[in-house]
């Protein structure tokens, strides 16, 4: 019955991260003038993916330990 909360958190942030990374690659450089020339979509997308990935890893590991 119990839902491991790390699973939805991991999924959500991985998806957010993926969206941002893709968007970061596609959008032109002048979009980033307001963010001081840094492609924040790309970089922060990577951070979000990493966070989501860590959460997912923990959740899946816990799941495989206790079937």
């Amino acid at each position: 019955m119990k839902l491991d909360l790390r699973l939805p958190i991991g999924l959500l942030f991985s998806i957010f991260g993926a969206i941002l990374v893709v968007y970061g690659f596609m959008s032109p450089a002048e979009n980033y003038r307001q963010s001081l020339g840094i492609n924040v979509n790309l970089y922060w997308g990577v951070v979000l993916c990493a966070f989501g990935g860590v959460m997912l890893t923990f959740a899946l590991r816990a799941r495989s330990k206790a079937p």
Partner: peptide, 11 residues
Amino acid sequence: KHYFPTGILGL
């Protein structure tokens, strides 16, 4: 609005 370009602004 000032610092976030489209994309991360959604976040």
